[in-house]
Computed example of a mutant assay.
Amino acid sequence: MSLTLEFDGAVATLTIDRPDKRNAMSFQMWSALPGLLDKVEADDALRVLVVRGTTHFSAGADISEFTTLRREPDDARRYNAAVHAGERAIATLTKPVIAAVTGVCVGGGCEIAVACDIRIAADDARFGITPAKLGIVYNAVSTKRLVDVVGPAWASQLLLSADLVDAATALRIGLVNELHPAADVFARATALAATIASRSQVSVRGSKKIISRITEGLHDEDEAVHALYEDSVNSDDYAEGVAAFLDKRSPQF
């Protein structure tokens, strides 16, 4: 299948492992993503997911399948549905997701990275979203997420030109959070994941929900938001956090 899911304490790592194709995503791989993400969602011991490639993050969808699995319009619609479901599985995971990006991060690979909450990248990585080279209209949900991340002007440049940008540009436009030497990217991503895993999960997941609501245009403090507040102040995490602060020690969540 060329996707592996591994666990180390509270951190799960999903690896795109198809180096002979620069980790291009096949239809089978896209189709497998929801099931793999369901495993992460269902395991209460897992608190953070890191998504990585091997040498490269991902060169996108496997173009060789376009003449077979995407030859006819109905086939293309089925393929696009699998891509969308895979991207949504990452973007809607209730637990934080960190992309550890090295090498090329293009097309569907960039779509996966943008679906993550945080992107840690190599200082020589390259990024691009290239449907304009293929006669494809980029999915509206993924386009919105790209606009949320980099703004409409840079989303326009990336989508309309289909040009690749370097890591320094990706950092400047907000496409990535941090840059590091390629050899250090996964270590930094897993260290950040461990830090997030050590924090109050009531706070982490509540914050992720509110951030998601804001990007969806929901800015009011409605009953759902008030419920998050209420759950937090009645949680064991809140009691531990206050006690640890008063005792001048690190909290154990």
Rank of each mutant, 00 (worst) to 15 (best):
D74M: 05
L171Y: 07
V165R: 13
V149K: 15
T92K: 14
V137D: 05
G103S: 05
V147E: 11
I98Q: 11
S161L: 10
T102A: 10
A100E: 04
V137N: 06
A121P: 01
L158M: 15
R172V: 00
A168S: 06
V150C: 10
K95A: 05
G151K: 12
R145Y: 00
I98G: 11
V101M: 09
D148H: 07
I90S: 06
L93G: 04
A82M: 12
L160G: 11
L164Q: 15
A85G: 05
T94K: 15
K133I: 01
V137W: 00
L171H: 10
A125E: 03
T169L: 14
A170I: 02
L160M: 11
K133E: 03
V150H: 08
L93M: 07
R126Q: 10
I118D: 04
K133V: 00
D124F: 12
I112T: 06
A115M: 10
T68E: 14
G128M: 09
Y79P: 01
G135W: 05
G108C: 06
V114M: 08
A76N: 09
R126Y: 01
A100H: 06
N139E: 04
V83D: 06
P73T: 13
V101H: 11
P96W: 07
I98F: 07
G109L: 11
G135M: 09
S142I: 02
A100M: 07
F127A: 09
A155Y: 03
R77L: 11
L160P: 00
D75S: 12
R119Q: 08
N139C: 08
P73W: 09
I112G: 08
L160V: 04
D163P: 01
G107P: 00
C116K: 08
V147G: 05
L160S: 15
C105Y: 02
E65G: 03
R70H: 06
V104Y: 03
G135P: 00
D74Q: 10
A113S: 06
A82P: 01
V137Q: 11
E87K: 06
V114D: 05
N80F: 10
Y79M: 15
D148S: 14
K133P: 00
C116Y: 06
A155E: 03
T94M: 11
L160F: 07
Y138W: 05
D124T: 06
V101C: 12
V149R: 15
L160H: 13
I136K: 13
I120E: 05
L134D: 02
R77F: 00
P96R: 14
V114N: 12
A170G: 09
V150E: 08
V149D: 01
L146K: 07
E87Q: 13
R172Y: 01
Y138E: 14
R172W: 01
